[in-house]
Amino acid sequence: MEFTVQQIADLLQGTIEGDSQVKVNSLGKIEEAQAGALAFLSNAKYEPYLYTTGASAVIVSDKLELKKAVAATLIRVPDPYTSFSTLLSYYQTALLASKTGVEEPCFLGQNSQVGENHYRGAFSYIGHNCTIGNNVRIFPQVYIGDNVTIGDNTTLFAGVKVYTNSVIGSNCTLHAGAVIGSDGFGFAPQQDGSYKTIPQIGNVVLEDDISVGANTTIDCATMGSTIIRKGTKIDNLVQIAHNVEVGHHTVIAAQTGISGSSKIGNYNVLAGQVGIVGHITLADRTTVGAQSGVGKSVKEPGTIIQGSPAFDYKQNLRALAVFRKLPELQRELESLREGKFTEG
């Protein structure tokens, strides 16, 4: 695909410095881009590359003051990073739109309906009584169980598994290998030391505008629903257990695990390898640092915690500073003890 700088500027509502009719046909990093590529500059430490880049056009801040002449055509916008992200979204949408029709072999169950302009890849399976919206892209080897609902403009990449009764909203993206609606980890201990399986008869509900990363698993509820609210973004290799509720526009990084029946507030940030115990609540706008273990509820909105067990971020940093000095402090303590005994 090839576009003029003017077309891109119109899309981003930016202003042009240079030749508006220059054509670009690819996207690239500012330090590596060659002729025909479009790059962007949002981090000041990369500004030197602006004056040496081979890119034909660069998206920059409308507040950037140039230190020397620039060969590339500039597109000035209020926020280059957001504008470039918008452009990537349009580019990805255009690529996905090229996928249409039905590849064989694939299966569509009885009483299931698929909307207009959809794509179903080879070896995909859609069960009975399903409702699939318009512009949905279902890549090869996707499994969709019975009674599943999927909204418009949602993409399920190769190997996604969606269990029976799941509900997936519009404008969602499920990356390869994601599993939606598998059994929650429910086992009742018996007197003889064995475990009895507790049937998991609930479902999973993903609201609109949700991204689920590769090989992430979201378990169905024991009863009721495991719910992921609108706009939440989930990284690869995340485990979300049964009856968890995740609020609006929360981000969850890789290798995080959330135990059953916990409630994660709106606009939370869970960094990588966070572990959260079951049956607790995190207030809105809570931030949990990487590798933290959260063992109790967070009640105050806007709290930042870190550590295992997790507690206030600043206190944790002070505690770590002391922890690093423990060998030295131990030596000093031993010296004081020896001196005391000598004086006695």
Rank of each mutant, 00 (worst) to 15 (best):
M1W: 13
F3E: 11
T4Y: 10
Q7E: 15
A9P: 04
D10H: 03
D10P: 03
G14Q: 05
N25S: 08
E32M: 15
A39H: 03
L50C: 14
L50M: 08
I59T: 02
E65D: 06
A71G: 05
P80M: 00
T86K: 13
Y91K: 12
Y91W: 15
L95K: 15
K99T: 04
G101D: 01
V102C: 09
E104Y: 14
C106H: 14
L108W: 00
R120W: 12
F123E: 12
S124H: 12
S124L: 15
Y125H: 10
I126R: 03
I126N: 12
I132E: 08
N135A: 13
R137E: 02
V142D: 12
I144M: 12
G145E: 10
T149Q: 15
I150V: 07
G151E: 01
D152Q: 02
N153Y: 01
A158G: 08
K161H: 07
T164Y: 06
S166K: 05
G169Q: 01
S170C: 05
A178S: 11
V179R: 10
V179N: 04
I180G: 09
G181F: 13
S194F: 04
Y195H: 09
Y195T: 11
T197L: 13
V205W: 03
V205I: 14
D208S: 00
I210C: 00
S211H: 07
A214F: 04
T217M: 06
A221R: 15
G224L: 05
I228M: 01
T232N: 02
K233F: 01
I234D: 01
Q239M: 10
I240C: 06
V244F: 03
V246F: 00
H249V: 00
H249Q: 02
V251T: 14
K263T: 12
G265T: 00
G265F: 00
Y267D: 02
V274Q: 03
V277I: 10
G278P: 11
A283H: 01
Q291W: 08
G293S: 07
G293V: 06
V294I: 09
K296V: 09
V298N: 00
E300Q: 11
T303L: 05
I305L: 09
I305M: 11
G307D: 14
S308L: 09
N316T: 10
L320M: 15
K325P: 06
R331Q: 08
R331T: 07
R337T: 06
E338P: 07
G339Q: 10
